[in-house]
Each structure stands twice: as structure tokens, then as C-alpha cells.
Design a protein around this nucleic acid. Structure first.
Length: 261
DNA sequence: GTTGAGCGTT
């Protein structure tokens, strides 16, 4: 929703989107509008909110009518303290339709192809949209729900050191603490994986699709007194389609490897 | 009540 109450974005044909980062969670579009409107014609102010809680996600999008005004707003508001937070204003890189943005403006089809043809963008990496979409979890969820996402976020933030000092009051306490926990967890996992690996070697990969709960404790390979041949035939009856290894079935017999190792 | 890297809506 936009600041004007309309449905969806008003008109992004000739607007320049600005991304305002590091704003307070209490800051609303009404608070940002007068601030940005002072430097130009603001077409729309949008603050993405969480679907469930409805709270602000900590950043906003301000669309200007003209690029020079947007640039001026960046120059004037970037680094300013708003609501007690040092905000960061910059041109948006992606449009609402997942389209690339050049200098804050949505690149049109013709312009896009032209740009590609003339000069390759020095963009080091193409960021997957799904990637950020998945990591769209606010820290609130981090309290004890999703720490799996932290892995990716942490590694990504590492390579983002080129950014300016966004938070001088960055307390490394959190990282250290979290890292310690992760380390411990990782160790335990690696051990378990090692065991599973050896087992998997003797076992057939057809078991992969069988194990629906990786978290569950791996049951000991209770081997019946019956010969391996019998077990093999029972374990992978219709799993032929799952195993894309035709040569294995012909050149090698899983029965022999099952018994040994 | 908390949080803090990032890129968007009916």
C-alpha cells in the first residue's frame, strides 16, 4: 500500500525510487513524507510491513518525480538522524516488479537491452530475488525460531563490508555469543553426519528419499538374519525411478557392498 | 516491551 491509500504503486513510469534504510521501526510514511517532500516532489512513500505483525521492517521507499530531486534528497538526508536513527538514503536497486533499477528509475525493456548492449554492468553478483525474499525475516523471528537464515545473512554481511559505517554502535557481543553456539552445534552435527556417511556408503542411496525426518535419530541398521540379497530386494522395490544410476544396477551389485564395509 | 541487515505494496 502506498502512502496515498491507493492500491498498489501509483505510477512508476517516471519515478525514481529511493531506499531509506535504518529507519526506526516506529517511523511511518507520514513521518518520512514531509521530510523528503522538502527536497522535491514525492510521488509515493511506502514502508514495507510484516504480513503477520504488520510492523515496519525498518526501511522505506520514497519515490521522487525527478532524479535531481531524489539525488538532492540523498545528499541531504543520507546520514541524517531521524527518530533517533541514522538513516541511509540511496537509490533503489530493484523495482516493485522485480525489475532492475538504474539510478533509481525502473529500466524499461528497450532501455534495458540497450544498456546491456552498450556496457556490461559492473554488478559483481546478481542477487537472486528469491534469496532476499526468503531472508525477509525481521530480527524478531530470530529470537528463537529461525536461526538457519542467520547463516546466510551472516556470510552475506561479511562481504558487505564495503558499506559505510552504518552502525558504529555495533556490539560484537551478539555475534560472538551466537558463533559459540553455532560452533557447538556444528560440531555435534558433523559427528553425526560422519556416522551417517559411513552408513550411507554401505547402504543404498535409495534410502535418501526414505528418510523423511533428518532430525530424527537415525535408527541402528538392525540387520535381520536374512541374507543381504533379501534385504536389498526389500529396500528398493519401486525406487528404480529414484536412482538415476543405471550402470550401478548392471555393473555392480549392492548386495556385495552392503555386507562389507 | 524486544530487534537492526536489507530492496517494495492491491
Amino acid at each position: 500500500m502506498s502512502h496515498f491509500g491507493r492500491s498498489g504503486p501509483p505510477d512508476i513510469r517516471d519515478t525514481f525510487s529511493l531506499l531509506v534504510l535504518n529507519i526506526s521501526f516506529r517511523t511511518t510514511a507520514d513521518d518520512l513524507y514531509p521530510l523528503f517532500e522538502r527536497y522535491g516532489k514525492v510521488v509515493d512513500v511506502f514502508i514495507p510491513r510484516d504480513r503477520r505483525s504488520g510492523d515496519s521492517r525498518g526501511f522505506a521507499f520514497v519515490r521522487y518525480k525527478y532524479a535531481d530531486e531524489a539525488q538532492k534528497a540523498i545528499d541531504r538526508l543520507d546520514g541524517r538522524t531521524v527518530d533517533g536513527r541514522n538513516i541511509m538514503v540511496q537509490f533503489a536497486k530493484y523495482g516493485p516488479n522485480a525489475e532492475p533499477i538504474r539510478r533509481g528509475r525502473v529500466i524499461e525493456d528497450a532501455e534495458k537491452s540497450r544498456d546491456r548492449s552498450r556496457s556490461r554492468s559492473p554488478r559483481p553478483r546478481h542477487r537472486d530475488r528469491d534469496h532476499r525474499k526468503r531472508s525477509r525475516s525481521r530480527s524478531r523471528e530470530r529470537h528463537g525460531r529461525d536461526r538457519d537464515r542467520d547463516y546466510r545473512r551472516r556470510s552475506k554481511s561479511r562481504s558487505r563490508s564495503r558499506s559505510r559505517s552504518r552502525s558504529p554502535s555495533s556490539s560484537p557481543d551478539h555475534k560472538s555469543r551466537r558463533r559459540a553456539r553455532d560452533d557447538g552445534k556444528r560440531k555435534s552435527r558433523s559427528k553425526s553426519r560422519s556416522r551417517s556417511k559411513s552408513r550411507s556408503r554401505s547402504r543404498s542411496r535409495s534410502r535418501s528419499y526414505h528418510s523423511a525426518s533428518p532430525r530424527k535419530k537415525s535408527p541402528p541398521p538392525k540387520r535381520s538374519p536374512t541374507p543381504e540379497k533379501h534385504t536389498n530386494g526389500k529396500d528398493l522395490p519401486p525406487s528404480r525411478s529414484v536412482s538415476p544410476s543405471p550402470k550401478r544396477a548392471g555393473s555392480r551389485s549392492p548386495a556385495s557392498s552392503d555386507g562389507k564395509e
